[in-house]
């Protein structure tokens, strides 16, 4: 017998609505029709075993997936009310609203810390009247890196430690002022202390940004996210509030995964 569900709290506004999203690498179907609403100003975690399509899923949201040779996708991804796969949408402009942080820290080796932070605005000639020093400081503070690097902004970005480099990449992403930030296992190359710093950071960032984070660290999902989606073999098995997913999953496969029976 199932308990009557509690009356729904006011549903948050949806930033992204995905429906019927399929994706392929060559003939291999990686996503088999995903329907997922992503609320604004929350952290949404995507979990699942390796190869389940979670990275591909977020790469479809800012159309990075199609950059890989032989990769394609179909379905609908609404950002606010615009389908990002509509023919008139320019993926370059889309990516200015939907930023991305990658698995491995990838600061530009040819640039200093300051240049890395400003790269997004400078490359796309959008500095406008903004003061470089202010943009730089704001983004580095948001990424909780300012105090560590404020005296060496002209040092190469690659001279920082792995955890600092990843926060530099987060600052670089935030500096272009996106609405959505996609994070593809941002802590998988970092030690526990650096990971904790980035998780703290996520708590602050969700006030201003819609964040979607792929992780295969289940504790991380419980610590940072409001909602969690569980992916398995290219399908979305279950999507709900993080608390519910981890305390009373509705699907047997979700329960098996979070209790460590496979994965």
């Amino acid at each position: 017998m199932t308990l009557p569900s509690p009356p729904p709290t006011t549903e948050p506004a949806m930033k992204i609505r995905v429906s019927g999203l399929k994706a392929w690498f060559g003939t291999h179907e990686v996503l088999k029709g995903i329907d997922l609403p992503i609320p604004a100003r929350e952290v949404t975690a995507i979990i699942g075993p390796s190869g389940c399509g979670k990275s591909t899923f977020i790469r479809c949201l800012n159309r990075m997936h199609e950059l890989v040779t032989g990769a394609r996708s179909e379905g609908q991804v609404l950002l606010d009310d615009t389908d990002v796969y509509a023919p008139e949408v320019d993926p370059v402009l889309l990516r200015r609203r939907v930023g991305m942080v990658f698995q491995k820290p990838n600061p530009f080796p040819s640039m200093s810390i300051r240049e890395n932070v400003l790269a997004g605005l400078r490359l796309t000639k959008r500095m406008g009247g903004r003061k470089p020093a202010e943009v730089c400081e704001k983004a580095l503070r948001q990424a909780a890196l300012w105090d560590e690097v404020k005296d060496k902004l002209d040092k190469p970005g690659t001279s920082l430690s792995g955890g600092q480099q990843q926060r530099l990449c987060i600052a670089r992403t935030l500096a272009v002022d996106p609405e959505v930030v996609l994070m593809d296992e941002p802590c998988s190359a970092l030690d526990p202390i650096a990971t904790a710093r980035i998780e703290d950071l996520l708590h602050d960032l969700r006030r201003d940004y819609t964040i979607i984070i792929v992780t295969h660290n289940l504790q991380q999902a419980t610590r940072v996210s409001n909602r969690t989606g569980f992916f398995l073999q290219g399908e979305l098995v279950e999507f709900d509030l993080t608390d519910k997913i981890f305390t009373s999953p509705q699907d047997r496969r979700t329960e098996d995964y979070i209790t460590g029976k496979f994965g």
Partner: peptide
């Protein structure tokens, strides 16, 4: 990817 992800052409 980093540059394209920032919205660069």
């Amino acid at each position: 990817e980093a540059a394209l992800g920032l919205g660069a052409t």
